[in-house]
């Protein structure tokens, strides 16, 4: 197995699948201004996915390109965390998913900028700028909804209850990471788990939200085992490439 290829898929698929999810909302946001904001985040993520999957295809060197990777793999070959494939739900679900993810990504990209792999470092640097903004937007919304009305509080508390279980997977590591950490390419995720937890709890605190007591950590997306939701997302996303294979668009 090519560890760098695998590593790039993990990062790239997170961007791709979340970008795809957010793109479903274009035209349906709660207010026009927010529609535009959500779409911007989606565009950033699809841009990141394009950079990462292009690089992955290069590293793999089997004649595939970013589009082949994005549109022609089967579900088991996608390496995103289960969190990002969760449905948009209501606006509270969307923002809570975004917040738990952005908080991780910001800390992750800050460190990935130091990677000895220069291309990866450059992608991380660009993505970090985008992610800082995403995190600002999503954490402010979590606070607004949590500390808003009674209805918004109970809705977004429910979002937290359902999504909380997926956050731990963000810190999943295996031999892929270990090999690349030794080479100075990958980030050791353990080094910022505490920082993540404390940042998240600061925001939740300000939002007057309480994380659920259950701390069962699961999620196996990094190994290609996904929730039921990914298959539907892929069916839609891959429709054209599957129906009309080998054509230019």
């Amino acid at each position: 197995m090519n560890s760098l290829f695998e590593y790039l898929l993990r990062i790239g698929d997170d961007s791709l699948i979340l970008g795809q999810r957010l793109s479903e909302l274009c035209g349906h946001g709660p207010i026009l201004e927010e529609d535009i904001a959500t779409t911007n985040i989606s565009l950033d993520l699809i841009g990141q996915a394009t950079n990462l999957l292009t690089y992955a295809a290069e590293v793999e060197n089997l004649g595939r390109d970013a589009d082949n990777l994005a549109f022609m793999r089967i579900d088991r070959e996608y390496k995103n965390v289960v969190l990002v494939e969760q449905p948009n739900g209501d606006f509270g679900d969307t923002m809570m998913r975004q917040f738990l993810f952005d908080a991780f990504r910001k800390l992750f990209f800050e460190r990935l900028q130091q990677s000895k792999d220069f291309q990866l470092a450059a992608i991380a640097e660009k993505s970090l700028k985008e992610t800082r903004y995403h995190l600002k937007h999503s954490s402010e919304w979590v606070i607004r909804l949590g500390d808003g009305t009674e209805e918004s509080h109970s809705r977004v508390q429910h979002s937290l209850n359902t999504l909380w279980r997926y956050r731990a997977e963000l810190f999943f590591m295996d031999e892929v990471d270990n090999e690349l950490i030794n080479k100075g390419i990958a980030v050791d995720l353990k080094t910022f788990r505490n920082e993540y937890d404390s940042f998240v709890s600061t925001i939740l605190n300000e939002a007057t939200l309480n994380p659920p007591a259950q701390n069962w950590e699961f999620g196996s997306g990094r190994k290609g085992k996904h929730s039921e939701h990914l298959g539907h997302l892929l069916a839609e996303m891959q429709y054209m490439q599957r129906t009309y294979p080998n054509m230019e668009w």
């Binding site: 795809q20 793109s23 479903e24 274009c26 035209g27 026009l32 529609d35 535009i36 779409t39 911007n40 989606s42 565009l43 699809i46 841009g47 996915a49 394009t50 999957l53 970013a66 589009d67 994005a70 549109f71 839609e236 996303m237 429709y239 054209m240 490439q241 009309y244 668009w249």
Partner: peptide, 20 residues
Amino acid sequence: TRAPNLRRKAVLLAKVQDEA
């Protein structure tokens, strides 16, 4: 959500966003 490749997806998304 069904755009045939990444470039078309980004362009279409940006365009629809412009309309907003």
